[in-house]
Nucleic acid binder design. Sequence first.
RNA 1: CGGGGCGUGGCGCAGCCCGGUAGCGCGCUUGGUCUGGGACCAAGAAGUCGAGAGUUCAAAUCUCUCCGCCCCGACCA
Length: 570
Amino acid sequence: MRQSKLFGRTLREAPAEAQTPGHRLMLRAAIARPLAAGLYTWLPLGFRVQKKVEQIIREEQDRIGAQEMEMPVLTPAETWKQTGRWDALEPITFRTKDHNGREFMVSYTHEEFVHLHAMQEIQSYKQLPQIVYHFQSKGRDEARPRAGLLRVREFVMKDAYSFDADQAGLEKSYAAEFGAYERTFQRMGLDAISVESDTGAMGGDVAHEFQVLTEVGEDRIAVCSNCDYRANLEKATRSVRRDGFEALDKAPEPSEIRTPGATSIEALQALLKRPPEAFLKTVLLTDARGTVVAVVLPGDREVNEAKLRKILGTSEVKFANDGQFAAAGGVPGFVGPVGLKARVLIDSSLDRRAFIAGANKKDTHLQNVVIGRDFRGEEVDVHDVREGDHCPRCKTGTLTIKRGVEVGNIFAYGTYYSDKMRATFVAEDGTQKPFVGGSYGIGVGRAVQTIIETHHDEKGIVWPPQVAPYHAHVLALPVNDADVRATAESLVAELEKRGIEVLYDDRDETAGVKFADADLIGIPLRVTVSKRNLKENLAELKLRSATDAEMVALAGGADRIADIVGSWPR
RNA sequence: CGGGGCGUGGCGCAGCCCGGUAGCGCGCUUGGUCUGGGACCAAGAAGUCGAGAGUUCAAAUCUCUCCGCCCCGACCA
């Protein structure tokens, strides 16, 4: 490819809106361009990367026996209504109607439709297991697209769907996808770790996210210093040292203490000279329907909203308003679980010992409040894990919180969809049984930008060879020297004959511009054919990832380049 | 959705407070000198100042409304 003809030019300065290093480089190197908030066009260079990433994903899916197919972007409303997701997804999806008024959704994902096809194509357990997948655009009307390709409103996702006859089969399919994901990300140069994740509104039990740890990520991941425990903060737990049991019997009955104006844990600490763990924090919240729930936590902990939403089975959690406070018998700033008229959730990390809690009475708290004796509630894990907490798995390590980009996820949902859609097959015993399924997604564009975020230096992108837009970048210096041009062009032709992908910088630019652009675009091998080197019949080879260059004889140049390119992982 | 910021040639920005008819750098075009790390000289082209309405003799500048984009948070299988 002649660079003088390349559609897409490099930018010396990045547009002001680009914030993350990957976003800036993606724009500067002419990988992609914005069309509107969260909508991007792949330019030719970026599109080549996208196709290579897709191909790696494809090969690893094929390796585990998954079959590629393709389902439409536009999907009919009726099927979504069968599973209740037409309404549930309303706030974050794009919708349209045809000329007859029939409703469609720009598909958010394709579980419903793959089930529809599975019930048509699979009648017998003998046809199971199956995994199918496709690469398809998804529409998500995100409230806040951000950081270039990391969060967008339309993107190509590889989504795979497994169908098994039973739970044991699902576990095998899940494990196969897990392995495929590990190989897939490794091959494209992403150091993705698997973390336990929340299954969210989808139901189901087991889910893993594949996270690439980087500061630009928007997810927060708890990572153990000692073992392999890694979990999204939406799900992470901790090991709690219980040391207050003996105090239980000795605690006297609760009694009131005057705490004028002490409406926060901090104020109480200051007033009573006690550590934050001495207090119970009680928060009044409501679910989407407005039902009030009281969450009781250690004084130094916060509610984890994701955990709470899952416990309540609701799509949103809000703070209770004044009327709801009054109805529950709570006084803002002095809320406590004793005598409260609301559903009470007790965080599972709380010790069985005497606490100080709000008295539901202005300027008053209760001391010697004991869980189980003075109030009751459901014991659940609803608190936020934080840096320094003890690992729930090995108990000895401590947790650190890191940021991550979720490049893929795998999710065993079981019969969640097949039950609702009556998607069944005939089992060995002759009865109709629902498919047991899982879904497995990878965001292609997000993966591409994450590769840039994690593979660059101050000069530009440093593509892993497997996904680089071209293998070699041939620079002619200067291009208007007839000998240089003829030599460079015959080298390019010879390389292309060997199947090497070459970007040929034939632009009439100075050396500085060409080198700077080569560094910016980040093609793994740079080949310089110059007037200077030509005198000695040499060409210069330099790996983008290396600091030193190598001089080779022009005569054997193509062989040497082919060796280098051939030595790269595929 | 809450909070904040920004919209001026393709990109980065100044001008706005204090109204007088738009400027700088990069890029682009033509000619020339150059050619191993973002060259130099000369001559050019290119802007409904996000949109609409209002105030005024006069609006990029003041007022109002709307739109778009970015950041933080919320939200996001």
